[in-house]
Simulated assay, not measured.
Amino acid sequence: MMWLCGVDEAGRGPLAGSVFAAAVVLPDGHGIVGLNDSKKLTERRREALFPQIQQRALAWAIAEASREEIDRLNILHATMLAMERAVAALSLVPHKVLIDGNRIPKGLTLPAEAIVEGDAKVEAISAASILAKVARDRALLALDIRYPGYGFARHKGYPTAEHLAALGRLGPCPEHRQSFAPVRAAGAQASLW
């Protein structure tokens, strides 16, 4: 049996928090209905699929690169690092890694292929997309409790009008990505944190 691992990320665009990646190896005939690019699914549907993927996958792992790593490495390299960590954390070694997008992390030592829009084309990548997105959304709910006032529970760190207004009002919190232009601009003023 050929073990194909799907890999995807969540959280490249937001102004705060870690970037997450997941790796998933699905068996043939896994029976999970409704796998798709996580962005095309409702939050409720992603939450329903999350435990099904974990229960039915041959192996799965979720990893992240921290806000500090994003600021030190840049978002692209931090994303690649999170993907490498997710693959390395799998309980089995896949024969091939299928990655959503057009880049393969340089640190991967396994055969790999980048697939543009893979999260809508390959079920294992769709599953990874869902795990990464749900894990990241949950992390932002926790940030919302730690740093109230920014609206993290609603916008999940994306640069919405609400988030930018809060940044202007409160300044950045410790989980804001200092290397992102809107955060740097807001950081010129005093922060409450």
Rank of each mutant, 00 (worst) to 15 (best):
G107C: 12
L110R: 08
A21Q: 08
V97H: 00
V33M: 06
E47F: 00
F50W: 12
G29T: 07
M83T: 04
A78W: 11
A78S: 12
A48H: 05
A89Y: 00
R44C: 13
M83Q: 09
P27V: 07
L26T: 11
P27C: 07
T42M: 09
T79L: 12
V93W: 03
E64N: 12
I104Y: 12
A86Q: 03
A59Y: 07
R85E: 13
F50H: 10
D28E: 15
M80R: 03
R56V: 14
K106S: 15
G29Y: 13
L49C: 08
F50R: 11
Q54T: 08
L26W: 02
T42D: 02
A89C: 08
G101T: 11
Q55G: 14
A21T: 02
I62L: 13
I104R: 05
G34M: 00
D71T: 13
V33T: 11
I53L: 01
L98Y: 10
H30S: 06
P111S: 04
F50N: 05
A61Y: 07
G31E: 03
L41P: 00
M80H: 15
P51Q: 10
A22T: 04
A78E: 07
I99W: 03
G29R: 11
D28H: 14
Q54P: 02
L73S: 03
N74H: 12
G31Y: 09
L92D: 03
L81A: 08
K106M: 11
A63W: 08
H95C: 01
K96M: 12
D100H: 04
N74D: 15
K96I: 01
N74C: 12
V87R: 00
I99S: 04
G101D: 10
N74Y: 06
L35K: 09
L49I: 01
M80I: 01
